[in-house]
Amino acid sequence: MFVANHSHYPRVGDSPELQKLRRAIEAAGRGAPKGELIQAQQEMTQRALHEQEEAGCDIVTDGQIRWYDGVSHFAGNFDGVAHGSIFRFFDTNFLIRQPIAKGKARWRGTLTAPDHAFAQRAAKKPVKAVLTGPVTLARHTILETDAYTNAMDLAADYAAGLVLEAKELFSAGATLLQVEEPSILTHPEDLPILKEFLAQINKSKPANASVFLATYFNDAAPLYTKLLELPVAGLIWDLTYSATLEERIAQGFSKVLGLGIADARNTKLEKPEDLARRIEKIAAKARGDIHLLPSCGLEYLPRGRAQEKLAVLAKTRRYLEG
């Protein structure tokens, strides 16, 4: 059983020291040398890695400290796609920059792989790389071009670029890759594109690498069987949105099982013994590894509480392992 971070991690905290990156971004906006911003990003990445490790994580992420958001970070790296106005991300109070496709989407080249390599050098634990999947990117993009007749066509081009990025991540040493696809839960008609995308990634991955699919912000139970059929090593579930998902999982699970069981959208701290009781039921019939995670990225929480949520998961594991 592993304790893992999900994806992002708060990039500022309440103390002046933990607001250094915020100040550096403001300064960069006023024309300060870019090197100062890069240094602040690197320092905050190191801090985020350290805090995850300190909380007891076995698998960490770089915290996505450099990303504006998970959608525009990738969509904006395609020629033919511009940044639009802001748009609420699912049911959060977090706003993303909505991409606008103005022409054929063509991947510009390496984006996150150097950041991954930096994080892995700085971390003591394995760093999981994260990509936002083509369905979620396409379903958040406004089409203002004749190059695409619908979002699925655009998703296919997004997929082609993201496969290249996955290869770069593997070349940079990534052995754990999480593909995030919250939009697949609201657009199940896009499953064939997602399946093909994951198959392409599998072809390019080294033998020692594992690819996981993460869904969140909606009930995955209606799509459960179809998600199980996808060519991934593991599935990461958000257990906070569904009344039935845990029961389905408890009937047996053969892939790596990611349990998003600590609510990353609310500050209320779970009791490890309560989580342990729920996990015991599921673990009895799980044949693969189990990852204990927050239900989604941690940037929806204040920094201190984000770390505490990870610590709760670590305590839960200790409780389970006696």
Partner: peptide, 17 residues
């Protein structure tokens, strides 16, 4: 009062509890 949470870009607010 809660801690700082990001709203978008480089904007943050104290999300109440």
């Amino acid at each position: 009062e809660g801690g700082l949470v990001r709203s978008y870009g480089n904007r943050y607010y104290h999300k109440p509890v």
